[in-house]
Nucleic acid binder design. Structure first.
Lengths: 230, 230
DNA sequence: GGTTCGTTCGAACGTTCGTTCGAAATCAAG
DNA sequence: CTTGATTTCGAACGAACGTTCGAACGAACC
């Protein structure tokens, strides 16, 4: 591999690494990081135990690469799509839908991101934490927008954002594609629940699951929101 | 220890076991189950490594006892207090407050319950899962009550309940008593957010954190709910 | 003192872990 | 074929793991 473009070998090398990361993520997601041994990963990839170390520096680096690329991708997709959203409500729904969309296509990776929050150590931890912080701050910014636009009195946006993140990050413990259906439908449901609450959900007209949220002038329809007991 | 009531020795034995469970829970919460060794626990309790096995059958049983007693206690407190609540809204708030109250006094144990959901194996897992299921079903029942009382159209209560559990179970990742304050205040905040949403929060008059929720005839105050952009 | 019983522990067992290393295998280029 | 770089792997290392076992301890009873 001297004369040839040197991109050929590079590409193959990268492809092998991606396959390794994919299998590792699946095992970490299924059994947890600590209960997964390098021997498990070797067997799943068809490589030998020693062969793994040609593609990565160690077990921690595997976890780091999984988390870092997952957070990077979800952040990139978020910032790529946000500017096209017409208003604050649509932006929040896009944030939620983006999260669920990425989750539905990379379930193992995102599960590992949620479950192994504190597993990485000194050199690796900081970089992932920075991306997670950026992600959180973006969400908090969206809530601030909503707060300003609708005159919401909320003295403690951080806590509110953490409740939302809780609902999002807990999904990995129960979501089953066959049972829980399309991520877009789930995103609509969670957006409505978060914005209008369990008792006020009906106030937001449900698009049949897919349509972007109707950017109605007023999110409340007076007649519909006047639910009372009986 | 033959003539003496045999309750004296029993009591001391139990006290020692409780101390062991407490320390084990703290270590499991701080480092995770897998990263905590029996040697760590021995050192934290002042016992020798072999001495631990006089009080428990093994590491898995430690985790089992921690999870089983925690779930048992929170379930008992829940069913003890629910009947005194006047209406469906008060019952939901009590459920949330009960969870946060128990969390604030047994942070390590509940963290271990949330984080090590799938760690227990065959003989132990089923019993804890049954209690967790009972806890979840109680919450779902409360939502059904609310649904009936307020005419909420929600085709999928299970998902809604899981969003609520997500917010609750995620708290262990960020809650710091000094920063995040009283659990009762947090419970009020989460109850309002869940029932009325981020945009509808103001509809529920905020008791200064402690008072039970006002069981207003209508949860929505028409004038206040008519927030629009700007 | 001697016996008994509940309690503690040092020492070790067998296993599994992450990682390393030097040698083989593979393969395009000269 | 030979060369040289890239890729693979068998074998082993030292460390840490959960658990076991038999001996020792201390306090109560005869």
């Amino acid at each position: 591999m001297a004369g040839k473009a040197a991109g050929e070998g590079q590409r193959r090398h990268d492809a092998q690494l991606q396959k390794l990361l994919k299998k590792a993520a699946e095992l970490f997601a299924a059994q947890g990081y600590d209960r997964t041994s390098m021997r498990d990963i070797a067997q799943a990839t068809g490589m030998s135990l020693a062969g793994l170390y040609y593609y990565c520096a160690g077990k921690q680096e595997l976890l780091f690469l999984i988390q870092d690329t997952a957070f990077g991708a979800i952040l990139e997709a978020l910032h790529a799509g946000l500017p096209a959203q017409p208003d604050a409500v649509a932006r929040l729904r896009f944030f939620i839908a983006n999260h669920l969309r990425y989750f539905s296509t990379h379930m193992a990776e995102l599960k590992v991101c949620s479950r192994e929050l504190t597993t990485l150590k000194a050199p690796y931890y900081a970089q992932v934490a920075a991306k997670r912080r950026a992600y959180f701050d973006t969400a908090k910014g969206l809530l601030q927008e909503l707060q300003a636009a609708y005159g919401v009195a909320d003295t403690d946006l951080g806590t509110t954002a953490l409740f939302l993140f809780g609902a999002l990050n807990w999904i990995y413990t129960w979501y089953r594609p066959s049972r829980d259906g399309d991520p877009e439908v789930l995103a609509t449901k969670l957006t409505r629940l978060f914005l209008y609450g369990f008792l006020g959900q009906a106030a937001w007209p449900a698009p049949d699951g897919f349509a972007p949220p109707a950017p109605a002038a007023s999110p409340f329809h007076a007649e519909e929101s006047a639910h009372g007991p009986r």
